[in-house]
């Protein structure tokens, strides 16, 4: 009845997001928005002594694509180094979201959480 984008898996993350909230004592604290669509995401993350990401949380508002991507990304980013996050791109996000092919108009929504974390890592001096 519905396309790839609105299938159960993504809607579950949209309605019941993982790691929703603000991480206390975070090493990374960043907010990013897509002004043209009104999506906004606030990401917080903690890194261990070796510099690996140990926890990520997000809060924000936006469409199914941006919010589901943020929810899934908070799980995917754990265990990665900042360099590994920096090397990630659209293809990784599409794979993370179950192999969807995002239309041009939705790429910015889906990559917002990734881009936010990249910016946050840079601002925190981890990249």
């Amino acid at each position: 009845m519905s396309s790839d984008l609105y299938r159960e898996q993504l809607l579950d993350h949209y309605h019941n997001p993982e790691n929703f909230g603000v991480l206390p004592d975070a090493d990374v604290d960043v907010e990013m928005d897509n002004p043209t669509c009104g999506d906004v995401v606030h990401m917080t993350a903690r890194l261990d002594a070796e510099g690996r990401i140990t926890a990520v949380m997000f809060e924000g508002q936006g469409c199914v694509v941006s919010m589901a991507s943020a929810s899934m990304f908070t799980e995917m980013a754990v265990g990665k180094t900042p360099e590994e996050v920096a090397a990630m791109g659209l293809a990784d996000i599409e794979a993370m979201m179950g192999g969807v092919r995002l239309s041009m108009g939705r790429v910015k929504c889906a990559t917002l959480p990734l881009n936010a974390l990249k910016l946050g890592l840079k601002e925190a001096g981890k990249l």
Partner: peptide, 27 residues
């Protein structure tokens, strides 16, 4: 969210606009 409205309507062949329609201060 307006994006989701537009994307779901598109599946029915319906074209609408979603966003701030070049009127951010109004929104």
């Amino acid at each position: 969210h307006p994006h989701d409205i537009a994307a779901l309507l598109d599946e029915d062949g319906i074209c609408i606009r979603a966003g701030h329609h070049c009127a951010q201060p109004l929104h």
